[in-house]
Design a protein around this nucleic acid. Structure first.
Length: 410
DNA sequence: TGTCCACTGGAAGGGAGGGCTT
DNA sequence: AAGCCCTCCCTTCCAGTGGACA
């Protein structure tokens, strides 16, 4: 009789795979095809070691072009080279997560020794003073890397950059060098001139990787993990070409490789082939969408559910007004407070930017101006995920649901 | 050619919920 | 405990608008 874990016992190359190598946070010891970009950064930050002043840097490039990884690599090498010579600390802030001035300053202040700063509560003046004191006490060079800086500036304006530049000018014993990372080439347009010139001292563009380059990167990781014999060349070629079609995104390619390996292992096979790549790709896309839906706030889920029910009733496109009515029925049915049309309008734009729906502003002439809304995801799956939320438990396959559908249909 | 619909999206502000200070 | 300060979510108010229709 076969043991139910048999498939995990077989396949000898499988057992000791170090999956850390395939994590986005993994920074390898060499970065293929980024030699010239690294060269520019080395020249810039090398000045610190000679007692000089580096320029502020702006890095442009689409996602997965190695911007963040290269900066992490530079930071690591620099801190290493500076040991017993100068104090250098690189501080990474992902502006998509830390999306207000307070938390950026708080991260900066808490990344070095000194007064501990609470994550909320202080007035900005007090926060500024504490961060300034901590940094000056450090007596060294801070490299502040603001990742996805365009998102922050679009949301909050460029005051934070001005404040950091001001802080730098007020420091006596330390220096701050700003590194902005963005995937928006038009990012500079959002900046005030007082900030623009200071931030734009050194500009580096990271081009997308070609299929060949991604292949090299993947090969590199496979070698580090020591699993050359476990991954077929065809699978690597396929991932490379799929990723190069998607803006040359190496991060996605590595993720896809990881998922393909896991899939091959769990189906008990001894080599990753093209078929695993295709299934991994589908699986990843599906999981990403469902995870997005699962983590939506309740009211947004109610709105999306309203849209899904409209779609279920046969229509493909709906106006904001129709969607609002559908949402109102869902909210009432689930005993949620009904939000105003203004708020719903914003939530529709949110769902649009998440890619779950398309909402295009269209004029119906005499019949007004509205967003035309279409759903972009499998509605049976999306509905199932939303109904897992306990707020909608009362609606699940009950007469209320039928009633809802009835209300919407008529 | 002007009207007018059904919205859009900006601006301002309230209040809840988090936390700190005195 | 009272008084601040912060962000987040939401409301209220309102000027603006593309294009079908009279």
């Amino acid at each position: 009789m076969d043991n139910i874990f048999k498939k995990y016992l077989e396949g000898k190359s499988v057992r000791n795979i170090d999956f850390k190598v395939f994590e986005p946070s993994f920074v390898p010891n060499k970065m293929p095809h980024r030699e010239s970009e690294i060269g520019i950064l080395v020249d810039n930050f090398g000045k610190i070691l000679m007692g000089g002043m580096p320029k502020n840097v702006l890095i442009f490039g689409k996602s997965g072009t190695g911007k963040t990884a290269v900066m992490k690599y530079i930071g690591r090498e620099l801190e290493d080279a500076s040991k017993n010579r100068v104090n250098i600390r690189s501080i990474f802030v992902n502006c998509q997560i830390k999306d207000n001035s307070y938390s950026i300053f708080e991260t900066m202040g808490n990344s070095i020794e000194g007064e501990k700063i609470p994550f909320t509560g202080w007035s900005f003046d007090r926060l500024y003073a504490a961060v300034k004191k901590n940094i000056d006490m450090y007596n060294g060079n801070i490299i502040l890397v603001l990742d996805e800086i365009d998102r922050f500036v679009k949301k909050n304006g460029d005051d934070i950059l001005y404040q950091v530049l001001l802080l730098d000018s007020e420091l006596e014993k330390s220096r701050i060098t700003l590194v902005g990372i963005t995937n928006d080439l038009k990012f500079m347009d959002y900046l005030d001139s007082r900030v623009k010139s200071r931030l734009n001292e050194e500009k580096i563009v990271f081009p997308p990787y070609t299929s060949e380059q991604i292949y090299d990167i993947l090969m590199d990781r496979v070698n580090i993990a020591g699993i050359n014999d476990f991954v077929s060349e065809g699978a690597l070629r396929l991932i490379s070409s799929l990723a190069s079609q998607e803006n040359g995104d190496a991060r996605k390619a590595i993720e896809m490789l990881k998922a393909s390996i896991q899939l091959a292992i769990s189906s008990g096979e001894n080599k990753v082939e093209e078929a695993h790549v295709f299934s991994a790709k589908n699986r990843m896309e599906y999981d990403a969408i469902m995870e997005t839906i699962k983590t939506l706030p309740v009211q947004t889920k109610a709105l999306l559910l309203g849209i899904l029910l409209l779609r279920e009733s046969g229509t493909i496109q709906f106006t904001t007004g129709e969607v609002f009515e559908a949402y109102r029925n869902v909210a009432n049915g689930a005993n949620l407070p009904v939000l105003t049309p203004r708020r719903i309008s914003d939530m529709l734009s949110d769902l649009d930017s998440l890619g779950l729906i398309s909402a295009n502003v269209t004029s119906l002439g005499r019949y007004g101006r509205t967003k035309m809304i279409e759903i972009n995801v499998s509605f049976t799956d999306a509905k199932r995920v939303i109904l897992e939320d306990e707020n909608f438990r009362g609606l699940k396959a009950t007469p209320t649901m039928k009633q809802l559908r009835f209300n919407i249909d008529h």
